[in-house]
Design a binder for these strands. Structure first.
Lengths: 245, 245
DNA sequence: CGCGTTTTTGATCTAACTCAAGCTTTGTGG
DNA sequence: CCACAAAGCTTGAGTTAGATCAAAAACGCG
């Protein structure tokens, strides 16, 4: 296939024309279809985008050629934060669905009067950092069960925050995407979902999900699942800075 | 031991008085000793801090009582970003060493004239987000070898960026901290370090590290290690948004 | 209606975890 | 100053969760 160091043309679904460009509805808004790129690793971004509708997948390609997904964004989320360090994006943003985004340039943010103020951007970035830290915590303890439960609960919470039914939804991404995002094998995702279904926590039909017991999922995701914690070690384990200089 | 939901008093090393408070050298600067907290989960922060000297460990306690370290900060780094969402910190910051920090309030950031401008803060946060994404990528592929190599190379690079010898340094944190940060078992960290030493990549004496072959470590961390990639799959594996709505 | 993609399920293998024990360094008190 | 305690580090043996390999079933599309 393509070589590793190559950033650009990545094979894309046959029935969609390959395009980084996208339809402009007005100066600041863009409409993307499934598979369209909003921007790619290395692109110089014009500013930050707010997702108005649809869904965006953010990912990077590693030196070994593996894709890794860093976030799934939904309406209200901001895209393009990864370019704020130096103007050049570190990741690729692709639409998972028909998606509408609107642009605000950094100049407008700093100047004020644009769509987003400095204070607001700082707050939103703080929120993104906190979410990333949540993800880091989930990824660093390696049980598939907790990762998946966390994902479902998190997705559900985000829907709820947007006034959308949190117990019944259609995921915009494939099982493979889910696996990549959670750092699991595709098969593990399927198996674990099957187990959730067997335990009556959820019901699934392809990408349609029904969360039957959100609290149960939340318990599972926090690890305070079931009865009696396996090893009584439910206390703070270590806290101070140990060691010597 | 202590209960989970309890935020506060966590046992601390015997010979240091327990204190969240810290010596004030002037209105904006604080001096902390090893084990002192700069702030804790849930505290309302007065602003953001720049580390002038020393080292800070940032961590959270999960519902299950496990500590998880989200970052190690060194001079020049900003602490307190986790409170920018709503003013309350999501994590605990503790000094690993004698550490000096200086405070800039958010009001001063937004108003300008303080130590840090809005534009600068936004850029620094962008940089932090990118670093977090690097960590996310490392954590989601579960080989201990790569995680550890990445850590060493990253630490070395950060030292180099500060004009400090990148090939010879003393880590401020324990093996346990390293393990927690990288999502590995303590024993795995030791073993993997031993393997690095045997391969001649590094030399170690307690917390004193000598990177003998930084490029080798970088290779290991990127996974493009050794000769011929195991499965020829060095191309872009998947790229487009798959599936159906 | 057949083909390609996605999802599911099964069997085996392995990297990392857990438990366990010994060793080293640092700090404490007689 | 030396012995002892405590914390940190290292190494060994056995177990296990999840990866990998393999194949089949479900669904969508032309």
């Amino acid at each position: 296939m393509n070589n590793v160091t190559q950033l650009s043309p990545v094979k894309i679904r046959s029935h969609h024309a390959f395009q980084t460009q996208h339809k402009k509805t007005n100066s600041n808004d863009s409409l993307l279809h499934r598979g369209d790129f909003l921007y790619r690793m290395g692109d110089k971004l014009k500013g930050i985008y707010v997702v108005n509708a649809g869904a965006i997948k953010l990912f990077r390609i590693t030196e070994t050629g593996d894709e890794h997904i860093t976030a799934f964004l939904m309406p209200g989320d901001i895209v393009g934060l990864d370019a704020l360090e130096d103007g050049y994006s570190r990741s690729t943003a692709v639409a998972l669905d028909t998606t509408c985004v609107s642009l605000t340039t950094i100049e407008n943010v700093l100047k004020g009067g644009g769509g987003i103020s400095s204070a607001e951007l700082i707050q939103r970035m703080g929120s993104t950092l906190n979410r990333d830290n949540d993800l880091i915590m989930i990824l660093s303890q390696r049980t598939a069960e907790r990762r998946l439960a966390w994902f479902l609960v998190d997705f559900s919470d985000r829907l709820a925050a947007r006034g959308i039914s949190p117990a019944e939804f259609t995921l915009p991404m494939s099982r493979t995407d889910l696996a990549v995002f959670l750092g699991l094998a595709l098969e593990t995702v399927c198996r674990e979902l099957a187990r959730f279904r067997e335990s009556g926590l959820i019901d699934i039909n392809r990408r349609r999900f029904y969360l039957l017991d959100i609290e149960g999922l939340r318990q599972t995701s926090s690890g305070c699942d079931e009865i009696a914690p396996k090893t009584v070690t439910c206390g703070v384990k270590r806290a101070a800075a140990g060691g010597y200089a």
